[in-house]
């Protein structure tokens, strides 16, 4: 479904991704793990076309999307759930969701079904539909960020540290919801600092360090290599 092949990405002169390759197959959750500054967010931004890769190729469903601008990547049913959540503060919860549905390649009826589905996952959002984005708590903002990705009906979700800074009970809740979303057929590339969450959700795991993929395997492979966990994740 998604194939990232030896991409090199720069911020100005700074060479951040140095030949990252990875793959997400249909229906999979794939985790991308690494220390702070390893290049996880940059990988997702390169896929989204936000910081385009200078070399290498990114293919999605057979098409080359390496140089597509973000709005065209999104229209191919790839949803980005950013690390900072990026809820539009001056819009209501409902308007944030509506924004995400404007260009979604779905018709009106399917769109309202998706809205219902997203709100069923996050009943707290339904109670706050008319509330401003900036008045939401951190957990609610994360819920809205995921819901906003969902309503577009994505085939693939790029989820960047969904549990960062949240209470354990909300972390558990979000983990279950991400699992349920995947069970309904949405593939995921998941960046996560919480190793337990990542290993519980992912079928395969990549470790990234200094812009290079250093390991690829299953969660069980990784558990069997405490040296790798120590070297690349510091645990």
């Amino acid at each position: 479904m998604l194939t990232v092949d030896a991409i090199h990405t720069y911020y100005g002169e700074s060479h951040v991704l140095q030949g990252v390759s990875l793959r997400v197959d249909a229906g999979e959750v794939v985790a991308l793990l690494g220390r702070n500054g390893a290049g996880k967010t940059t990988t997702l931004k390169s896929i989204m076309g936000i910081v385009p890769a200078r070399r290498g190729t990114i293919r999605f469903d057979g098409a080359d999307i390496t140089r597509l601008p973000p709005h065209l990547v999104a229209r191919r049913r790839i949803a980005w759930i950013p690390e900072e959540r990026r809820i539009v503060p001056n819009l209501t919860v409902y308007e944030n969701l509506r924004l995400a549905m404007l260009k979604a390649p779905v018709d009106g009826k399917e769109a309202s079904a998706r809205l219902e589905e997203a709100l069923a996952f996050f009943p707290r959002l339904r109670e706050r539909l008319t509330q401003n984005g900036k008045s939401l708590s951190g957990g609610e903002q994360q819920m809205l960020a995921i819901a906003r990705g969902l309503v577009a009906g994505p085939a693939l979700m790029l989820v960047d540290e969904p549990t960062e800074g949240l209470m354990p009970i909300i972390v558990r809740n979000l983990t279950e919801i991400l699992h349920a979303i995947n069970a309904r057929g949405t593939s995921m590339l998941l960046v996560e600092q919480n190793l337990e969450v990542a290993l519980a959700l992912a079928r395969r795991v990549y470790l990234i360090d200094q812009g290079r993929i250093e390991f690829e395997g299953t969660p069980d492979d990784l558990r069997g290599h405490p040296d790798l966990l120590r070297r690349y994740l510091g645990v």
């Binding site: 601008p69 308007e95 995400a100």
Partner: peptide
């Protein structure tokens, strides 16, 4: 209006609006 919604959102965070599929 829908366009007004996009303008209000784009004023605060152009990047997320584009990442939601809208050609700004």
């Amino acid at each position: 209006t829908t366009l007004g919604l996009v303008i209000r959102a784009g004023t605060r965070d152009a990047l997320i609006v584009r990442a939601l599929g809208i050609n700004l």
